[in-house]
Amino acid sequence: MPFKYPFSTKGYTPQFCHAVHFILEKEGGLRADGGYVNDPKDPGGETKYGISKRAFLGVDIATLDIDRAVRIYYTNYWKAAYCHEFAGNVALYQMDSAVQHGAITAIKLLQEIAGTKADGKMGPNTRTAVHGSDAEWLVSRYGLRRARYYARILKNNYSQTRYIEGWHNRLADLTDAAWELAA
């Protein structure tokens, strides 16, 4: 029996469905309340399904449903970070990075790893470098690069230290999920 996602998969690729399911799981979006939180210490503010009020001012977070959240992920992260152009495990890492740090930053991180100019623009040099690299190598390097990125966040804003364990646990789970896709 095929896996049943808790959201409509119509119009989405299996790679996207897998990636967004991972994101929803990590963001608490698979809970009955959609992972709704309104932590005053979280710079994202009110959040549900991992969608924050800070990032989406026009969205009524309290009434957001899972299918609308999935559409937001598809448009603002999957497509915006060009995840659809890459192998499943690289796409998963790219998607999670876009959700955590923004699509432009995710592109820059991937460019740094692939050895191209980190300008945040997905051009032919970046595409060639990523497609010409071993996907498992890219994923391994991506995890290390993201860990360094988290360190910079803490250096610039020490109050975010309370999230470091969760960030690193997420990276470990992300790496496991990416390796499963590579197998």
Rank of each mutant, 00 (worst) to 15 (best):
K48W: 13
L57N: 10
G58I: 06
E46N: 12
P40Y: 04
G50N: 02
E46D: 06
G45C: 07
A55I: 06
K53D: 09
K41R: 15
T63N: 13
G58H: 10
A62C: 14
D65Y: 02
G58C: 13
V59I: 08
E46V: 04
K48R: 07
T47Y: 00
K53S: 04
V70L: 05
A55S: 11
T63V: 09
I51W: 03
L57E: 15
T63P: 11
K41D: 14
D65M: 06
G58V: 10
I61W: 00
T47L: 08
I51N: 07
V70M: 11
E46I: 02
P43T: 08
L64C: 07
A55C: 05
D67R: 10
T47V: 04
L64E: 03
P43N: 06
G50D: 05
T63W: 04
K53Q: 08
I51A: 02
G45A: 11
T47R: 05
G44W: 15
G44A: 05
D60K: 05
V70D: 13
G58E: 13
G44Y: 07
S52G: 00
V59P: 01
P40S: 03
D65R: 04
Y49P: 01
L64Q: 00
D42I: 03
A62T: 14
A69F: 14
F56Y: 04
R54K: 07
A62N: 05
R68L: 14
R54Y: 01
A69V: 13
V70F: 07
A62S: 07
A55G: 01
D65L: 02
I51S: 00
D67F: 12
T63S: 11
F56M: 08
D65N: 12
A69S: 15
P43Y: 03
S52Q: 02
K53I: 02
D67H: 10
L64K: 00
D42Y: 00
Y49E: 09
L57R: 10
D42T: 00
